[in-house]
Design a protein around this nucleic acid. Structure first.
Lengths: 189, 189
DNA sequence: GTCTATAGTATGATAGAC
DNA sequence: GTCTATCATACTATAGAC
C-alpha cells in the first residue's frame, strides 16, 4: 500500500485516541502502540503531531464550510435550510465521528496559520446559521424567540452528536434525521 | 487570609486555564504564573495537580446530583420538572461557568476512585432525566418522539451553556431561563 | 518502513533555605 | 508562604543502522 494509505491509518488511529483523552494527553508513543510500531517510525509518514491534528480538523471544517455554502446558495426557505443543516451534521457525524471530537475540543491546539483559518471558517459558519434563522423569523417561518438562543441550542446539539451517535445501536440515518428535525425544530412538548 | 482561601484562588485560576487549554495542556508552571508565584509554591496549598481537577469536577457533579434529587422527589408534572432542570443548569452555569469546562471535557483524567464516583453520578443523572421524559410521554405531556433523542438534544444544549453564556452581554438569568425553556421545550418553528 | 539510540526540552513534584 | 535548586521521568523529534 502506498505511503498515503499508511498516513490515513495513522490519522484515523490518532482521531480515536484524541477522542478518548484529548490531543495533549495522547503521546506519540500511545499512537505508535495503537499502530503496532515504534514512535520513531511514525515520522516516516507524518511530519509532526501537529500535522495530524490540523489534518483532522481542517478537513472537517472545510467539509462543513462547503456544505453550508451549498445550503446558503440554494433557494429553499428557512425551515428547509435548517433541515439541510441538520442533515449535513448527521452525514458528517456518521462518516467521521472520531474526528469531530478534535474539531470540537482540540481546535485551540492548532498553530498560528491553521488556527486563524479554522476560526474564520467557524465564525462564517455561525454567521450563516444566524442569518438563516433571522430571515426565518422575518418571513414568519420561525418563532420570534431570541436568535442567539435558537442558534446556540440547535448548534450545540448538532456539534455534540459525535458523542451520542456511537452509543446508539446502528440507528438508521434516515430515521435519525427525521426524528432530530422534529425534536430540534418542533420541540418536545 | 487562611490557607483555604488561597487554595480556592488556585482552584479558580486553574479552572480558567483548564477551560482555555484543557487539563493536560496546562502545566503547574502556567498555573503558578497566573497566580504570580513559582510552581513549587503551589504545593503548600494543594497536594497535586490531580487534586485540583477532582475538586473542580466532583464539587460540581455533587451539585447537579443534589439538584436533580430535589427535582425528582418533588410532586410536579414532567414539564415542570424539565423546566426545573433547565433552571438548575442555568444557575450552576452562572455561578461556575469555568469549572463546567473541566466537568464536560476533562472528567476522563480523573483517577480511579473519583473517576468511578463521577461516572456513577453522571449515569444516575441521565437516568433520572430519561425517566422524567418517559413518564411525560406516558402522561401525554411530552410528544411521543424518540426518548433518547429528546434527552440527548436537551442535555447537550444545557451542558454546553458554559461556552455560550459568557459571550452574551450580561443577559438576565430570569429572561435566559424563560427563553431557554421556550426554545428547548416548544421548538423554534 | 521499522528499528535502536539519543538529543534537547518540559513535566509534576520534593528538599531545604529564608 | 515563597523561593531556588533539583530529581526522576516523559515528551517530540532526529540520526543512522538494517
Amino acid at each position: 500500500m502506498k505511503p498515503e494509505g499508511r498516513k490515513q491509518e495513522i490519522i484515523q488511529a490518532a482521531a480515536i485516541l484524541f477522542k478518548e483523552k484529548g490531543y495533549s494527553a495522547v503521546t506519540m508513543r500511545d499512537l505508535a502502540k495503537a499502530m503496532g510500531i515504534k514512535a520513531a517510525s511514525l515520522y516516516n509518514h507524518i511530519q509532526s503531531k501537529q500535522e495530524i491534528l490540523s489534518t483532522i480538523i481542517i478537513d472537517l471544517a472545510e467539509e462543513f464550510t462547503y456544505g453550508m455554502g451549498q445550503i446558503v446558495s440554494s433557494d429553499e426557505g428557512a425551515i428547509r435550510k435548517l433541515e439541510n443543516i441538520i442533515s449535513l451534521h448527521i452525514d458528517v457525524t456518521l462518516r467521521n465521528a472520531d474526528g469531530l471530537a478534535s474539531l470540537n475540543n482540540d481546535w485551540m491546539h492548532l498553530e498560528e496559520e491553521n488556527l486563524l483559518y479554522f476560526e474564520k471558517m467557524r465564525q462564517d459558519y455561525e454567521e450563516n446559521f444566524r442569518n438563516i434563522v433571522t430571515k426565518g423569523t422575518v418571513a414568519g417561518e420561525v418563532k420570534p424567540y431570541n436568535i442567539e438562543i435558537m442558534v446556540f441550542s440547535t448548534l450545540s446539539t448538532l456539534r455534540t452528536l459525535y458523542l451520542w451517535y456511537p452509543k446508539q445501536n446502528n440507528i438508521d440515518a434516515a430515521i435519525l434525521k427525521k426524528d432530530m428535525i422534529s425534536v430540534l425544530l418542533k420541540g418536545v412538548i
